[in-house]
Amino acid sequence: MKKLFAIVIVATLLAVSIVILVGCNQADINVEIIQFGNFDALNSAAEGFTQRLEDWANEQGKTIHFEERNANATASNVAPSVQSAIANQPDLIYAIATPCAVNAAGNTTDIPVLYTAVTNPTGEGLVGQDNVYGTSDMNPVALQIELIKDLVPNVKKIAFLFCSSETNSVVQVGMAKVQCALMKIDTKDFAVSSASEIAQVVASIGEDFDAIYIPTDNMLANSISTVASANTHNIPLIVGEAGMIAGGGWATLSINYKLLGAQTAEIAIKLLSGQQVSDAERHQMYKGALELVISEDAKTALGLTSEQVTALQQKYGE
């Protein structure tokens, strides 16, 4: 009886997996998308990519299937997602954010891996591997510091808030410090190692700071509302990307991740239509226009007139 039961279970599992496998391979083109977390920026990067590729596939009269996987912002979920993506032998893998890109590139040398939302592809070792292509989302850190100066003209001291285990953030904070040194602004690091510490670390930022700066940091993007509500001194909160504004960030100059995704899709189109991708095109920086985003609350708090906002938009829009 037990044996029979076991056989039935195994048979069902086999049948289910065969159905799933067959179901996957019906389209002309199969793309595996591995996204690190469910953040606005990364969602936009996925959307821009899939939209552009779908449009192209329609023009070509081909069908395209996207298998989307999400690691839910957990490092230990990345490897299994990548493994199952590779097991499906797709035409290409689209890896969104550094952990996914690094893992995908490390696990396949034949399937093309296209990355995006990676700040420092050279530092992560993505440059120099034959099957790896992509776009960097290197944040306009220096310009964002300049924006702080525009919004808080007498800024003297900036607090950097970031997660100490995210390389992307550490690199950006380093760049921000260089810019601050040029502008003669003092800085102090407030590094956080887990989400449960954020409220207390933010509370420990003294009134003598004129601004708080958060780079494109995954953990802090996730907890941006915690930061905003612990910021009792109402210190201007300048953030690395527009996704953090809805959660309580004040202002940012931001890369448009949807355009970045579409830019990455252009490389994918070249690959899928068998064209040569030149070395110069392999690893690209963001080419679109920057967006100035300021929350309504911040405009009131900073006393910005609509003319001032327009002037800033013109300054950074190019």
């Binding site: 839910n72 887990s194 989400a195 449960s196 954020i198 996730n222 509302s225 915690t226 509500s229 959660g247």
Partner: peptide
């Protein structure tokens, strides 16, 4: 409610605290 935010990792290390 205090943090105006709930995250999946808000309790990391709660047992030690």
């Amino acid at each position: 409610q205090k943090d105006s935010n709930a995250t999946v990792d808000m309790a990391s290390g709660a047992i030690v605290i």
